[in-house]
């Protein structure tokens, strides 16, 4: 029930943004459509609805955005330097990394963040194990590798979703 209600609110907000007006006709129809959407798809919402109400989580989400942009820029420059340098500074390979994130959605956001960052790409998720294609596989040390790739992301995502 809670998921359905959350979905209803989300759908309603999206509808209002789409029509961009507050005419009573649009509002009523939008409520109806959002209700229908929530009835059909509400139970698939991949979040616990209670978490949506927590302001702390929203705060961490706001913090996460600049962090992600920073990481992304850093990786961009790193990859650009590798490309521009005369030698072949790549040593591609796939590493297997264990994450401590619990919920599906957090893991998916982690995987997507890794994929969006240049130089790394998530190939597959199985339970709490991520298989990541990496442009320069470091030493055989698992913990160092995971720290290098997912450390900062994991820290914030755990606070947002878990």
């Amino acid at each position: 029930m809670g998921k359905r209600f959350a979905y209803f609110v989300m759908g309603f907000v999206v509808w209002i943004v789409l029509v961009y007006t507050l005419q009573y006709q649009e509002v009523i129809v939008g409520a109806g459509v959002a209700l229908l959407t929530a009835a059909i798809f509400g139970r698939h919402l991949p979040l616990k609805p209670g978490k949506l109400l927590s302001p702390v989580r929203w705060f961490w989400l706001l913090v996460y955005i600049p962090v992600f942009v920073y990481m992304c820029l850093k990786a961009n420059i790193d990859v650009a330097l590798r490309v521009l340098s005369p030698g072949l500074l790549i040593k591609p390979g796939i590493v297997k990394i264990r994450t401590r994130l619990k919920s599906d959605i957090a893991r998916v956001f982690l995987a997507n963040s890794i994929t969006l960052t240049p130089g790394t790409m998530t190939v597959e998720i199985k339970e709490d194990v991520l298989y990541i294609h990496w442009i320069e596989v470091g030493a055989g040390d698992m913990t160092a590798a995971s720290k290098a790739i997912i450390g900062p992301f994991e820290y914030f995502l755990a606070r947002i979703f878990d």
Partner: peptide, 11 residues
């Protein structure tokens, strides 16, 4: 996304 897609289609 599926729900939002449905909503957008209805819109």
């Amino acid at each position: 996304l599926a729900g939002l897609l449905f909503l957008f289609g209805t819109y």
